[in-house]
Computed example of a mutant assay.
Amino acid sequence: MRESLRQKAIEICDKKIAQKGDNVGVSFYAFFKNKNDAPDALMEAARWWIETHQLDHFEKAVKIKGLIEKGL
């Protein structure tokens, strides 16, 4: 996953955790605006989420942040 997307995902996870606690769930769609203005990045995130890690649609933000920080 490209570095800019990694940083964005970590920021979103941090924000969600701060707002709603450690049990908050996220989807990779949370890393993007409601319009498809970055289709390459969206597909990259989808591949990382679905193909590489076989994650459910919603996962705990803490888990996603941990995976990203470990470079997985």
Rank of each mutant, 00 (worst) to 15 (best):
M1N: 06
R2F: 05
R2K: 14
E3Q: 11
E3S: 12
E3F: 07
S4E: 11
S4G: 10
L5T: 04
L5C: 03
R6A: 08
R6D: 02
R6F: 01
R6Q: 15
R6H: 06
Q7K: 11
K8Y: 05
K8T: 09
K8R: 13
A9N: 03
I10E: 05
I10T: 09
I10N: 04
I10S: 03
E11D: 11
E11F: 08
E11L: 15
I12A: 00
I12Q: 00
I12R: 03
C13W: 00
C13V: 02
D14R: 06
K15D: 08
K16R: 14
I17N: 02
I17W: 03
A18C: 06
A18S: 13
Q19C: 02
G21L: 08
G21F: 09
G21I: 12
G21M: 15
D22F: 10
V24K: 03
V24W: 02
V24L: 03
G25A: 12
V26L: 12
V26K: 00
S27W: 03
S27M: 09
S27K: 11
S27L: 06
S27F: 03
F28S: 02
Y29L: 08
Y29I: 06
Y29C: 07
Y29E: 09
Y29H: 12
A30R: 06
A30E: 13
F31H: 01
F31L: 06
F32M: 05
F32I: 05
F32G: 03
K33Q: 07
K35N: 08
K35T: 15
K35C: 14
K35S: 09
N36D: 07
N36T: 13
N36M: 06
D37S: 11
D37T: 10
D37L: 07
D37W: 09
D37Y: 08
D37Q: 11
P39T: 04
D40E: 14
A41F: 12
A41K: 10
A41H: 06
A41G: 13
L42K: 11
L42N: 08
E44G: 09
A45N: 01
A45F: 01
A46R: 14
R47Y: 15
R47G: 15
R47A: 15
R47T: 15
R47F: 13
W49Q: 03
W49M: 05
I50D: 09
I50Y: 14
I50M: 14
E51D: 14
E51Y: 13
T52E: 12
T52K: 15
T52C: 09
H53K: 11
H53N: 14
Q54R: 13
Q54Y: 09
L55F: 07
L55G: 02
L55C: 10
L55N: 08
L55P: 00
D56R: 14
H57A: 14
F58R: 12
F58G: 03
E59K: 07
E59V: 10
E59T: 04
E59G: 01
K60M: 08
K60T: 13
K60H: 07
A61N: 00
A61F: 01
V62T: 15
K63C: 05
I64A: 04
K65W: 03
K65H: 01
K65L: 01
K65V: 04
K65M: 02
L67P: 00
E69R: 14
E69P: 04
K70A: 12
K70V: 07
G71T: 08
G71I: 05
G71C: 05
